[in-house]
């Protein structure tokens, strides 16, 4: 099975080498401007911003991701759906995101990116992760689509997909629900941008 890395922060050779070794086929890279290929990987440009206005002016071929910190960032889901392809949750969002905001996400079919870094940061605070709990519930009950990624910027941050799946299993997302965030959901986002890739 081939996997998709939804957030790659650097284009270092060891990182790309590790990705292709771990059966990744596509990597969505922050900072590049057009589609390219390297190390048997398809590299797709991505832009991440905290302000939705910045995403509006970004080129059409880029995967547009909005960084969400609080409930206020998802106030207008219709506009969000029109501009951004997915939203990325920060550690603050994992702590605070309420039930109604999560409801908006699955009602308007907005995919949610869950970076491993923000998950670990949120876990370090040793507080009740209200947002994470609400999201897991929504994934299991309402089919909210999530994308799980390690967001590697160093070679040691490239995590094997089997390990990522096991982390999801430990969070309570098991079976096909754990496999989808690394394969089908990122692929669906890419198709919504206009990239037809067969994995």
């Amino acid at each position: 099975m081939k996997f998709i890395e939804f957030c790659l922060m650097s284009l270092d050779k060891p990182i790309l080498g590790n990705l292709s070794k771990y059966n990744y086929k596509v990597a969505i890279v922050e900072g590049i401007k057009k589609l390219s290929r390297a190390n048997d990987l398809i590299l797709i440009p991505r832009i991440t911003r905290t302000n939705i206005e910045d995403l509006k002016v970004a080129p059409k071929n880029m995967v547009k991701v909005l960084k969400v910190r609080s409930n206020d960032d998802i106030k207008d889901p219709i506009r969000l759906r029109r501009i951004a392809h997915a939203i990325s949750l920060t550690s603050e969002a994992l702590l605070r995101l309420g039930r109604k905001s999560v409801e908006k996400l699955y009602n308007f079919d907005i995919p949610v990116e869950l970076p491993l870094k923000s998950l670990l940061d949120a876990m370090e605070s040793q507080k009740y992760l209200k947002g994470l709990v609400n999201i897991i519930k929504a994934v299991l009950r309402k089919n909210l689509e999530i994308i799980f990624t390690a967001c590697p910027s160093k070679p040691n941050e490239v995590i094997h997909p089997v390990m990522l799946i096991s982390i999801l299993e430990e969070l309570g997302i098991t079976g096909t629900y754990a496999l989808k965030p690394l394969t089908l959901t990122p692929l669906r986002v890419l198709r919504s941008v206009g990239y037809v890739i067969h994995v």
Binding site: L116, N156, E157, I159, H160, V162, M163, I167
Partner: peptide
């Protein structure tokens, strides 16, 4: 595997 992932990071 989760513990190994944390060790790697």
């Amino acid at each position: 595997l989760t513990a190994l992932a944390l060790l790697q990071i």
